[in-house]
């Protein structure tokens, strides 16, 4: 599904990614761990096309297409979703309008008809339950005045609404208490199918108690320096990152 080869990227002229290789297949869950500043969030930004980052070398092939050639909204339309580490507030734009615009724009990209009002409302109800989201939140403006936990839950809610093929969760666990963490993880697990894949970026092993990864990668100084299965995460928890350097 996703093949990243020798990816280099810079922000403001500073090289952050220094040759990342990663292959993700359908149905897989990949965890990316690593210390602060190792390039985890940069990787998520580059895959989704954040214009603040510049790719200087390498390839990202997604479902046979050169992803780097697509605009951010085309990548979204093709099924790539990012759960933001810091979800952005958009005052005045209600969640309902935002979601309807997002769904219909993505459908348009795929050559599908817009979703009907009834179907849309049904979908909203169903997905809100999935992430146990307060129904009041969807009547409010996008992320405005949401608590940290509500923002993260709102990201997973949007993911449930948009049903991406490839979901990237950037530190979705940070700032969550244990109940919220369980709810978010449950949401992610329920959305898992043999047809989609996810990349879970996290600092802590704790999230991986709930979302069981097939692979764990350690990103350090812009490169993946070690890959393994779930046990690698436990080992990291115990020993820290220093032994890998």
């Amino acid at each position: 599904m996703l093949e990243i080869k020798n990816l280099h990227a810079t922000v403001n002229g500073k090289e952050i990614l220094k040759g990342v290789d990663l292959t993700v297949k359908k149905g897989e869950v990949h965890a990316i761990m690593g210390p602060n500043g190792s390039g985890k969030s940069t990787l998520a930004s580059v895959i989704t096309g954040n214009p603040a980052f510049e790719v200087t070398k390498g390839k990202v092939i997604y479902e046979g297409v050169d992803l780097l050639e697509l605009s951010p909204e085309e990548r979204a339309g093709a099924g790539v979703f990012l759960s933001f580490q810091y979800p952005v507030e958009i005052p005045g734009v209600s969640m309902v309008n935002f979601m309807r615009a997002a769904i219909n724009e993505q459908r348009k990209y795929r050559g599908q008809e817009p979703v009907s009002a009834t179907e849309f409302l049904r979908l909203m109800r169903e997905k809100k339950e999935l992430v146990e989201m307060d129904s009041q939140l969807t009547n409010r403006s996008v992320n405005e005045g949401f608590s940290g936990g509500e923002k993260k839950r709102n990201e997973i809610f949007q993911m449930a609404m948009l049903e991406p093929k490839l979901a990237i969760l950037d530190e979705t666990d940070s700032g969550l208490d244990i109940d919220a963490l369980r709810i978010v993880a449950n949401g992610v697990n329920k959305l898992k199918t043999p047809e989609n894949a996810s990349i879970v970026i996290t600092h802590y092993q704790r999230l991986l108690d709930y979302i069981i990864p097939d692979f764990v990668h350690v990103l350090h100084d812009g490169k993946i320096i070690k890959s393994g299965d779930k046990s690698l995460a436990l080992e990291l928890e115990e020993k820290g990152y220093d032994w890998l350097k």
Binding site: P72, E73, G92, E105, S141
Partner: peptide
């Protein structure tokens, strides 16, 4: 970018934000 990532292009994002 947040809107772009959800599939909404920049012109429409501006429209959405301005109307909001």
């Amino acid at each position: 970018f947040y809107c772009n990532q959800r599939g909404i292009d920049t012109e429409k994002a501006v429209g959405l934000i301005v109307n909001g």
